[in-house]
Amino acid sequence: MKVGYIQARRIKDIEVFQVTANVDKIAVDLLDESDKSNSEGEVFAKLLSEISAGDVIVLQGLSNLPYNDVSELCSFLGSMKEMAVEVQLIDESDGQPLLSDEGFEALSYLQGYIQQKDSQKKKIGRPAKKFADNFYEVYLEYRNKNIKADSAASKLKLNKPKFYELVRLFES
């Protein structure tokens, strides 16, 4: 079965898509004037639950999906690959490279990268100790015995115990 999906605001857009896509069935998420989907992708979710292996899904482009982040897009493309559902884009400049194996691998890497960066930001507990911008240079002077701890702490605008604490942390 060949199905189409579009987010549209006007009947004219739907009719043009229908003719261009040449599909057996079309699913439409209507958008209001402020670009927000009235159904929040419910029609698309229902469509996905009805498709099976060997089907073809035709989209205007990947930006015409009800997803707001890379993770959701990656999950969609991954499930289409797993189900052996072919994804076709009318506007090939809107995501065609991501449909290849290499494109999907790049998108998967990007998703993992974003998740890793996000998890690093959401640490629970005390805030991490921060090093001054010039800490490394001052540390090298201190380690090479060019300056004493008092002078190093003064350059970093720290007290001596705090300087020693940062040195221990840095060297651990």
Rank of each mutant, 00 (worst) to 15 (best):
Y164K: 06
A27P: 00
L156K: 04
E137T: 10
A132P: 04
K117A: 15
V28R: 05
Y139R: 11
F135R: 05
V58L: 03
Q7D: 03
L47I: 09
L156P: 00
R126P: 01
A153L: 06
Q115S: 14
I51L: 11
Q60W: 12
V43W: 03
L140R: 13
P97Y: 07
N159P: 04
L169Q: 14
F163K: 04
K157F: 06
Q96N: 09
Y139W: 15
N144K: 15
F135W: 06
A21D: 00
Y164H: 12
V16S: 10
R10F: 13
K12M: 11
E105P: 02
E171R: 08
M83T: 05
N68W: 08
Y67E: 08
K122E: 13
S37L: 14
S34E: 14
F17R: 00
K162M: 10
Q88F: 07
Y164W: 12
L73K: 03
L156A: 05
K155A: 12
K81S: 04
K148S: 09
E137L: 10
S63W: 07
E82N: 12
F44T: 00
I11C: 08
K148G: 14
I14N: 02
S108R: 04
L140I: 14
N38K: 15
S154Q: 12
S172A: 12
L30D: 04
Y113P: 03
S151E: 15
K130Q: 15
Y5H: 07
L140W: 07
K12Y: 11
A149S: 14
L31Q: 11
I90A: 02
G103D: 05
S119G: 04
K130N: 11
L169M: 13
L30F: 14
L62K: 02
F76M: 09
F44K: 00
Y5P: 00
L99V: 06
D29W: 01
R9F: 09
K160Q: 13
K157P: 01
A149G: 11
E42G: 12
P127A: 13
S39K: 08
N144R: 14
V28G: 06
E165F: 08
Q120R: 10
Y113K: 14
K160W: 07
L47S: 02
I6E: 00
V138K: 01
D35E: 12
K122I: 13
K25R: 15
F104A: 08
C74N: 09
I51R: 01
F170I: 05
L169H: 15
N22T: 08
K121A: 12
V138W: 01
L140E: 13
G41Q: 05
K46V: 10
I147H: 02
D118H: 10
V167M: 02
D91I: 08
S100Q: 07
K81N: 05
S172P: 01
L99E: 00
E141V: 04
G125H: 06
Y139Q: 09
K145Q: 12
D24V: 06
R168P: 02
V56F: 03
L47G: 02
G41R: 04
S154E: 15
N134T: 11
